[in-house]
Protein backbone atom coordinates (compact mmCIF):
# COMPACT_ATOMS: atom_id res chain seq x y z
CA UNK A 1 0.00 0.00 0.00
CA UNK A 2 1.53 3.35 -0.96
CA UNK A 3 1.74 6.17 1.56
CA UNK A 4 -0.25 9.33 0.97
CA UNK A 5 1.81 11.98 -0.81
CA UNK A 6 1.90 14.28 2.20
CA UNK A 7 3.25 11.58 4.51
CA UNK A 8 5.84 10.53 1.95
CA UNK A 9 6.98 14.14 1.61
CA UNK A 10 7.19 14.58 5.37
CA UNK A 11 9.13 11.31 5.75
CA UNK A 12 11.50 12.40 2.98
CA UNK A 13 12.07 15.83 4.47
CA UNK A 14 12.48 14.34 7.95
CA UNK A 15 15.16 11.92 6.72
CA UNK A 16 16.89 14.59 4.66
CA UNK A 17 16.60 16.99 7.57
CA UNK A 18 18.16 14.46 9.91
CA UNK A 19 21.22 13.60 7.83
CA UNK A 20 21.80 17.16 6.66
CA UNK A 21 21.14 18.43 10.15
CA UNK A 22 23.71 16.04 11.57
CA UNK A 23 26.27 16.80 8.90
CA UNK A 24 25.97 20.50 9.70
CA UNK A 25 26.16 19.86 13.43
CA UNK A 26 29.29 17.79 13.00
CA UNK A 27 30.84 20.39 10.72
CA UNK A 28 30.12 23.05 13.31
CA UNK A 29 31.63 20.83 15.99
CA UNK A 30 34.66 20.33 13.78
CA UNK A 31 35.08 24.07 13.39
CA UNK A 32 34.72 24.63 17.14
CA UNK A 33 37.35 21.96 17.82
CA UNK A 34 39.85 23.52 15.43
CA UNK A 35 39.23 27.00 16.80
CA UNK A 36 39.66 25.77 20.34
CA UNK A 37 43.00 24.12 19.54
CA UNK A 38 44.46 26.96 17.49
CA UNK A 39 43.33 29.75 19.82
CA UNK A 40 44.77 27.94 22.82
CA UNK A 41 47.99 26.98 21.03
CA UNK A 42 48.68 29.35 18.10
CA UNK A 43 52.16 27.86 17.64
CA UNK A 44 50.48 24.57 16.66
CA UNK A 45 48.82 26.20 13.68
CA UNK A 46 52.14 27.74 12.71
CA UNK A 47 53.90 24.35 12.93
CA UNK A 48 51.21 22.57 10.92
CA UNK A 49 51.18 25.28 8.25
CA UNK A 50 54.97 25.13 7.91
CA UNK A 51 54.84 21.36 7.49
CA UNK A 52 51.85 21.51 5.20
CA UNK A 53 50.05 19.18 7.57
CA UNK A 54 46.28 19.11 7.99
CA UNK A 55 45.03 17.24 11.05
CA UNK A 56 41.86 16.39 9.13
CA UNK A 57 44.02 14.39 6.72
CA UNK A 58 46.63 13.00 9.11
CA UNK A 59 45.55 9.43 8.41
CA UNK A 60 46.44 9.82 4.78
CA UNK A 61 49.80 11.25 5.85
CA UNK A 62 50.26 8.27 8.18
CA UNK A 63 49.55 5.85 5.35
CA UNK A 64 52.22 7.55 3.20
CA UNK A 65 54.77 7.47 6.02
CA UNK A 66 54.11 3.80 6.64
CA UNK A 67 54.25 2.89 2.94
CA UNK A 68 57.45 4.84 2.42
CA UNK A 69 59.03 3.25 5.45
CA UNK A 70 58.08 -0.22 4.26
CA UNK A 71 59.49 0.43 0.78
CA UNK A 72 62.78 1.78 2.07
CA UNK A 73 63.01 -0.90 4.71
CA UNK A 74 63.35 1.67 7.43
CA UNK A 75 60.00 1.06 9.06
CA UNK A 76 60.06 -0.82 12.30
CA UNK A 77 56.84 -1.30 14.11
CA UNK A 78 57.93 -0.92 17.68
CA UNK A 79 56.87 -3.95 19.65
CA UNK A 80 55.51 -2.89 23.01
CA UNK A 81 56.68 -6.13 24.61
CA UNK A 82 60.16 -7.60 24.57
CA UNK A 83 60.89 -8.94 21.13
CA UNK A 84 60.26 -12.61 20.73
CA UNK A 85 62.37 -15.19 19.07
CA UNK A 86 60.25 -15.92 16.04
CA UNK A 87 60.26 -19.60 15.17
CA UNK A 88 62.05 -20.46 11.98
CA UNK A 89 59.67 -21.42 9.21
CA UNK A 90 61.39 -24.79 8.84
CA UNK A 91 60.54 -25.71 12.44
CA UNK A 92 56.91 -24.75 11.91
CA UNK A 93 56.78 -26.75 8.70
CA UNK A 94 58.46 -29.68 10.46
CA UNK A 95 55.72 -29.61 13.11
CA UNK A 96 53.10 -29.69 10.39
CA UNK A 97 54.90 -32.36 8.32
CA UNK A 98 55.41 -34.62 11.34
CA UNK A 99 51.74 -34.36 12.10
CA UNK A 100 50.64 -34.94 8.51
CA UNK A 101 52.88 -37.97 8.17
CA UNK A 102 50.73 -39.77 10.69
CA UNK A 103 47.63 -41.51 9.40
CA UNK A 104 44.94 -39.43 7.70
CA UNK A 105 43.86 -37.39 10.71
CA UNK A 106 41.46 -34.52 10.25
CA UNK A 107 42.84 -30.99 10.34
CA UNK A 108 44.17 -30.29 13.80
CA UNK A 109 43.05 -26.97 15.14
CA UNK A 110 45.50 -27.21 18.01
CA UNK A 111 48.44 -27.24 15.59
CA UNK A 112 47.09 -24.16 13.87
CA UNK A 113 46.60 -22.31 17.15
CA UNK A 114 50.00 -23.30 18.51
CA UNK A 115 51.74 -22.08 15.40
CA UNK A 116 49.75 -18.85 15.27
CA UNK A 117 50.52 -18.13 18.91
CA UNK A 118 54.22 -18.53 18.18
CA UNK A 119 54.06 -16.02 15.36
CA UNK A 120 51.53 -13.40 16.40
CA UNK A 121 52.62 -10.46 18.56
CA UNK A 122 51.24 -10.11 22.08
CA UNK A 123 49.28 -7.00 21.13
CA UNK A 124 46.80 -7.09 18.30
CA UNK A 125 48.15 -4.91 15.52
CA UNK A 126 49.82 -4.79 12.14
CA UNK A 127 52.12 -7.69 11.26
CA UNK A 128 55.56 -7.57 9.73
CA UNK A 129 56.10 -9.03 6.29
CA UNK A 130 58.01 -11.90 7.88
CA UNK A 131 55.15 -12.73 10.23
CA UNK A 132 52.69 -12.61 7.36
CA UNK A 133 54.81 -14.99 5.28
CA UNK A 134 54.97 -17.46 8.15
CA UNK A 135 51.22 -17.31 8.71
CA UNK A 136 50.59 -17.80 4.99
CA UNK A 137 52.65 -21.00 5.18
CA UNK A 138 50.87 -22.26 8.29
CA UNK A 139 47.41 -21.54 6.88
CA UNK A 140 48.25 -23.06 3.52
CA UNK A 141 49.65 -26.23 5.08
CA UNK A 142 47.17 -26.73 7.92
CA UNK A 143 43.92 -25.44 6.47
CA UNK A 144 44.78 -26.15 2.86
CA UNK A 145 43.73 -22.79 1.45
CA UNK A 146 46.17 -20.72 -0.61
CA UNK A 147 46.21 -17.31 1.07
CA UNK A 148 48.27 -14.18 0.62
CA UNK A 149 48.68 -11.06 2.74
CA UNK A 150 49.61 -9.18 -0.43
CA UNK A 151 47.83 -10.22 -3.59
CA UNK A 152 48.45 -8.54 -6.93
CA UNK A 153 50.09 -5.68 -5.05
CA UNK A 154 47.08 -5.10 -2.81
CA UNK A 155 47.29 -5.33 0.97
CA UNK A 156 44.58 -4.73 3.54
CA UNK A 157 44.95 -1.87 6.00
CA UNK A 158 45.99 -4.57 8.47
CA UNK A 159 46.00 -8.37 8.48
CA UNK A 160 45.67 -8.80 12.25
CA UNK A 161 43.01 -6.85 14.04
CA UNK A 162 39.68 -6.90 15.80
CA UNK A 163 36.56 -7.89 13.94
CA UNK A 164 33.15 -6.64 15.06
CA UNK A 165 29.60 -7.67 14.36
CA UNK A 166 27.95 -5.92 11.41
CA UNK A 167 24.31 -5.87 10.33
CA UNK A 168 22.94 -7.58 7.24
CA UNK A 169 23.19 -5.59 4.03
CA UNK A 170 20.29 -4.93 1.68
CA UNK A 171 20.62 -7.43 -1.15
CA UNK A 172 18.21 -5.70 -3.50
CA UNK A 173 16.02 -2.58 -3.46
CA UNK A 174 13.28 -3.13 -0.91
CA UNK A 175 15.01 -5.99 0.84
CA UNK A 176 13.92 -6.35 4.43
CA UNK A 177 15.50 -8.82 6.83
CA UNK A 178 16.06 -8.89 10.56
CA UNK A 179 19.00 -6.86 11.77
CA UNK A 180 19.59 -5.01 8.52
CA UNK A 181 21.70 -1.90 8.08
CA UNK A 182 20.02 1.24 6.81
CA UNK A 183 21.22 2.08 3.32
CA UNK A 184 23.25 -0.09 0.96
CA UNK A 185 26.69 -1.55 1.41
CA UNK A 186 29.72 0.17 -0.07
CA UNK A 187 29.42 -1.81 -3.29
CA UNK A 188 25.69 -1.35 -3.59
CA UNK A 189 23.04 -4.00 -3.90
CA UNK A 190 23.93 -7.62 -4.59
CA UNK A 191 21.12 -7.91 -7.15
CA UNK A 192 18.99 -5.49 -9.14
CA UNK A 193 15.76 -6.88 -7.78
CA UNK A 194 14.34 -9.74 -5.74
CA UNK A 195 13.65 -11.72 -8.89
CA UNK A 196 17.30 -11.31 -9.95
CA UNK A 197 18.65 -12.52 -6.62
CA UNK A 198 20.87 -15.52 -7.32
CA UNK A 199 22.21 -18.12 -4.95
CA UNK A 200 25.64 -16.59 -5.47
CA UNK A 201 24.38 -13.16 -4.40
CA UNK A 202 22.69 -14.64 -1.34
CA UNK A 203 25.92 -16.33 -0.31
CA UNK A 204 27.95 -13.18 -0.91
CA UNK A 205 25.81 -11.15 1.48
CA UNK A 206 25.59 -13.99 3.99
CA UNK A 207 29.36 -14.36 4.28
CA UNK A 208 30.48 -10.77 3.86
CA UNK A 209 33.13 -8.83 5.74
CA UNK A 210 33.90 -5.15 5.98
CA UNK A 211 37.50 -4.00 5.52
CA UNK A 212 39.03 -0.56 5.86
CA UNK A 213 39.46 0.27 2.21
CA UNK A 214 38.84 3.89 3.14
CA UNK A 215 42.27 3.98 4.80
CA UNK A 216 44.28 2.52 1.95
CA UNK A 217 47.09 4.94 1.05
CA UNK A 218 45.81 5.95 -2.36
CA UNK A 219 42.22 4.87 -2.21
CA UNK A 220 40.92 8.11 -3.66
CA UNK A 221 43.50 8.34 -6.45
CA UNK A 222 42.93 4.75 -7.58
CA UNK A 223 39.28 4.62 -6.65
CA UNK A 224 37.96 3.06 -9.82
CA UNK A 225 40.56 0.26 -9.95
CA UNK A 226 40.63 -0.42 -6.22
CA UNK A 227 36.87 -0.42 -5.83
CA UNK A 228 36.57 -3.01 -8.56
CA UNK A 229 39.46 -5.10 -7.25
CA UNK A 230 38.11 -5.35 -3.71
CA UNK A 231 34.49 -5.98 -4.66
CA UNK A 232 33.55 -9.46 -3.39
CA UNK A 233 37.24 -10.31 -3.02
CA UNK A 234 37.56 -13.55 -1.03
CA UNK A 235 39.38 -13.55 2.27
CA UNK A 236 40.16 -16.18 4.87
CA UNK A 237 39.32 -15.11 8.40
CA UNK A 238 40.75 -17.03 11.34
CA UNK A 239 39.68 -16.48 14.92
CA UNK A 240 43.02 -16.51 16.72
CA UNK A 241 41.43 -17.52 20.03
CA UNK A 242 39.81 -20.76 18.92
CA UNK A 243 41.07 -21.42 15.38
CA UNK A 244 37.66 -21.21 13.72
CA UNK A 245 38.03 -20.18 10.11
CA UNK A 246 35.68 -18.93 7.44
CA UNK A 247 35.97 -17.93 3.80
CA UNK A 248 34.25 -14.57 3.40
CA UNK A 249 33.98 -11.92 0.71
CA UNK A 250 34.53 -8.18 0.95
CA UNK A 251 31.26 -6.33 0.52
CA UNK A 252 31.48 -3.37 2.87
CA UNK A 253 33.96 -0.59 3.70
CA UNK A 254 34.76 0.10 7.33
CA UNK A 255 34.69 0.20 10.26
CA UNK A 256 35.95 3.64 11.14
CA UNK A 257 39.41 3.66 12.71
CA UNK A 258 38.09 5.17 15.91
CA UNK A 259 35.82 2.22 16.76
CA UNK A 260 38.66 0.09 18.06
CA UNK A 261 38.02 -2.45 15.32
CA UNK A 262 39.66 -3.06 11.96
CA UNK A 263 37.19 -5.47 10.34
CA UNK A 264 33.48 -6.19 10.35
CA UNK A 265 31.69 -9.49 9.87
CA UNK A 266 28.16 -10.40 8.90
CA UNK A 267 26.10 -12.19 11.56
CA UNK A 268 26.84 -15.52 9.87
CA UNK A 269 30.57 -14.83 9.69
CA UNK A 270 30.67 -13.87 13.36
CA UNK A 271 28.58 -16.87 14.37
CA UNK A 272 30.88 -19.23 12.55
CA UNK A 273 33.94 -17.62 14.09
CA UNK A 274 32.77 -17.63 17.67
CA UNK A 275 29.13 -18.47 18.16
CA UNK A 276 25.95 -16.47 18.57
CA UNK A 277 27.34 -14.25 21.31
CA UNK A 278 30.61 -13.46 19.57
CA UNK A 279 30.53 -9.77 18.69
CA UNK A 280 34.18 -8.77 18.77
CA UNK A 281 37.48 -10.60 18.70
CA UNK A 282 40.97 -10.80 17.25
CA UNK A 283 41.34 -12.35 13.82
CA UNK A 284 43.84 -12.67 11.04
CA UNK A 285 42.51 -11.92 7.59
CA UNK A 286 44.33 -12.81 4.36
CA UNK A 287 43.31 -12.74 0.72
CA UNK A 288 42.40 -16.08 -0.82
CA UNK A 289 44.34 -16.69 -4.00
CA UNK A 290 41.52 -18.21 -6.00
CA UNK A 291 41.70 -17.07 -9.65
CA UNK A 292 39.34 -19.82 -10.82
CA UNK A 293 36.75 -19.09 -8.14
CA UNK A 294 36.78 -22.61 -6.76
CA UNK A 295 36.92 -21.91 -3.04
CA UNK A 296 33.37 -21.75 -1.65
CA UNK A 297 32.26 -19.13 0.82
CA UNK A 298 31.46 -20.22 4.33
CA UNK A 299 33.05 -21.89 7.32
CA UNK A 300 35.94 -24.31 6.97
CA UNK A 301 35.21 -27.51 8.85
CA UNK A 302 37.52 -28.60 11.62
CA UNK A 303 37.33 -31.67 13.79
CA UNK A 304 35.71 -31.01 17.15
CA UNK A 305 38.50 -31.17 19.67
CA UNK A 306 37.99 -29.75 23.12
CA UNK A 307 41.07 -27.71 23.92
CA UNK A 308 41.67 -26.88 27.55
CA UNK A 309 40.37 -23.44 28.27
CA UNK A 310 39.19 -22.82 24.73
CA UNK A 311 35.57 -23.22 23.81
CA UNK A 312 35.24 -24.85 20.45
CA UNK A 313 32.30 -23.78 18.41
CA UNK A 314 30.84 -26.36 16.09
CA UNK A 315 30.57 -24.99 12.64
Amino acid sequence: MTQPAKETYQKYTQEKYTSEFLRNKLKLKSLETKTSLFEKYPHVKKFLDEKGLDLDKIRKHSAKVITTGALTGTLLFAVPTPSRNLPVISSIVKNITDFNSESSKPINQEKLLTNLREILPDNVGPLTRSQEKQIEKVINDVIGVNTKATLEGEHLNTTYGFIGLEQHLARYPGDNVTYMAPGRGAWGYFAGSKSNLTEEAIEREKWYVAVQTLYLPDWEERLSYVKDWYKYRKVLVVNTANGNAVIADIAEAGPAAWTGKQFGGSPEVMNSLGGSRYTKGAVVMFFVDDPKNKVPLGPIQYNNIDLKGVTMVEV
Partner: peptide, 21 residues
Protein backbone atom coordinates in the same frame (compact mmCIF):
# COMPACT_ATOMS: atom_id res chain seq x y z
CA UNK B 1 21.62 8.38 9.65
CA UNK B 2 23.76 8.12 6.53
CA UNK B 3 21.72 7.21 3.48
CA UNK B 4 24.69 6.30 1.27
CA UNK B 5 28.26 5.09 1.55
CA UNK B 6 29.51 8.45 0.35
CA UNK B 7 27.57 10.19 3.09
CA UNK B 8 28.78 7.70 5.68
CA UNK B 9 32.41 8.24 4.66
CA UNK B 10 31.91 12.00 4.73
CA UNK B 11 30.52 11.90 8.25
CA UNK B 12 33.27 9.53 9.36
CA UNK B 13 35.87 11.91 7.93
CA UNK B 14 34.40 14.81 9.88
CA UNK B 15 34.44 12.81 13.11
CA UNK B 16 37.98 11.72 12.33
CA UNK B 17 39.03 15.36 12.06
CA UNK B 18 37.29 16.25 15.32
CA UNK B 19 39.02 13.39 17.14
CA UNK B 20 42.45 14.22 15.71
CA UNK B 21 42.25 17.88 16.76
Amino acid sequence: VASSTEELNELRDIVDGIVNH
